[in-house]
Simulated scan of single mutants.
Amino acid sequence: MSTAHPRLSINQATIKHADLATALQVTADAGVQSIGLWREPVNEVGLDLAARMLTDSGLRFSSHCRGGFFTLPEGPERVAALDDNRRAIVETATLAAAAAPGSAAVLVLVAGGLPEGSRDLIGARERVRDALGALAPFAQEHGVTLAVEPLHPMYASDRAVVSTLGQALDLASAFDPAVVGAVVDTFHIWWDPQVLEQIARAGREGRIASYQVCDWKTPLAEDVLLSRHYPGDGVIDFASLTRAVVEAGYAGDIEVELFNADIWAAPYADVAARTVSSFAESVAPHL
């Protein structure tokens, strides 16, 4: 068994095709102490069984992916989206309670892109704010932090109208930091000339709910969603970003989350081992 850094968490997306039981086993076998889960594998087995499996694994729970996608205008589809986010909040609370001590009840929110046929980016962002207002009391009741994740601007049209950490913090500012925070994901924010300033701001406001790391390398994949790389394989300066997050006071688990077809096709144990070693080389020295 390898010796993994105690703050490393493998986000389940990194071994996307593994079912929940396999993901838990592979993570534990790699010596990793924490895992970030996705809703689909959890729902495949059912929440109660998933919670028992997580308990039995002995792993911490670093985040649940994902909620959000609530930029739709008023109507039945928006109502359904908000209801689905409430289910995700319950899942997050249940899994966090079932996991090892030190787990985080954090639900990652991807805001959603422009509704079909719309060019109203300003209105879409306002509907994100409205959705947070609708969900925050329910999240607070369940002890869950809603973590708004800004995505790189290339995803603004179809996945996330929130593109910078500053925008995420602005959206969160009306709410208790324990209820609405932000995700700092290196892939999405490394390019932002204000990123260090905004990480420091997030620390002052107590809103860093999750730190996720992976690398950026060009050329991008034909499907730009699948363009993430192991830390150290691209151009991101993990030293400055990680030091900034540490100085901002974040002391939680750090997820490696990789969307990459080649990585997904590799043996799960090899991916976990490479995740451990790349984290040790590129991120851990700056903690």
Rank of each mutant, 00 (worst) to 15 (best):
I15C: 13
A93H: 06
I254H: 05
R52E: 14
D223C: 00
E205D: 14
T275H: 01
G133A: 13
A273T: 09
L132Y: 00
G102A: 13
H286N: 13
Q198K: 12
T164L: 05
I189F: 04
V148D: 02
G234V: 06
H286W: 15
L241W: 07
L59Y: 05
Q167A: 12
A97K: 14
S278N: 04
G232R: 03
D253C: 14
S57W: 04
R87W: 03
V161S: 06
L225D: 02
P219D: 08
V79T: 15
D130A: 15
G117E: 01
I263E: 06
W216R: 14
Y155L: 05
F187V: 06
D233C: 06
T242D: 06
A168V: 02
D253A: 15
R228V: 01
D233L: 04
R127Y: 08
H17D: 14
L135S: 07
A124G: 13
G252S: 08
V79F: 02
Q25T: 15
A131E: 00
S2G: 05
G68I: 01
A284D: 05
G203E: 02
D83P: 06
G123S: 11
L121F: 14
R125T: 11
E91L: 11
L54D: 07
G46P: 06
R274I: 00
A251C: 11
G143Y: 04
N43R: 15
A265K: 11
P41D: 03
G75Q: 03
L258E: 01
P115Q: 04
V256A: 05
N85K: 03
F61Q: 08
T275A: 15
R52I: 04
R243T: 14
A105C: 13
H64S: 13
S63G: 00
I35T: 12
A168L: 01
H5S: 14
E141I: 00
V183A: 12
V245G: 10
C214W: 01
V195H: 09
D83R: 15
L287W: 15
A80D: 10
S163W: 00
A98V: 08
V195Y: 04
D215H: 11
G117K: 07
P73K: 05
T94P: 04
E197Y: 07
A156V: 12
H17G: 09
